[in-house]
Write a protein that binds this DNA or RNA. Sequence first.
DNA 1: ACAAGGATCCTCT
DNA 2: GAGGATCCTTGTT
Length: 200
Amino acid sequence: MSRGDLLQRASLHHDALVSARRLLGMHLVAGEVTLAITEVEAYRGPSDTAAHSAKGRTARTEPMFGPAGHAYVYLCYGIHHMLNIVAGPQGHGVLVRACEPVSGLAQIQARRGGRSGPVLLTGPGKVGQALAIDRSLSGHDVLSPGPLELREGTPPQSVLHGPRVGIGYASPEHQRAPWRLAVAGTRWVSHPKGLEPYTP
DNA sequence: ACAAGGATCCTCT
DNA sequence: GAGGATCCTTGTT
């Protein structure tokens, strides 16, 4: 199969919610492994109480305040490497929550304990593990050739949305906000319940 | 130095 | 569906 072009940076010069919609179906390429993005969450800047950028600008969160198209990778629960794509407005980012394998399935399975099926890639920690990323990639540009690249894929025709996962520390309003987006009809989604058709 | 908590995962029932 | 595992980052002494 042919390999897509690197995504244009202008695609991410938007609010994280718009960028999130744009990222569905795009490809993440790390060596032999290529994943198609199936589920994302938008974190909409310092005013979004669920976003790391709302807790201030630190060494860890610095990439969130940098150029669009860079990665923000952080360690969650001391174990899981979570991949975000930084979007245009200051402090905006998109968390990649689930993907579908496109190539390199054997390597993905090896990194994921020999498992198979959606359990391989439905969860942000699992995506990080499959791509073998860590915090050394935080602040890295994923729109230029390198160890992790974001390339054109196939945008989905229809999309679902619902509340974001695991943000009990955020304000009630932001806990309810339906800023988690997923490709409609795919099995490669971490929490299928609570998702409804998305009509922008 | 230390304590607290976390954008999760996995293994049960 | 629920609960424990797990260990680094952060803010505070």
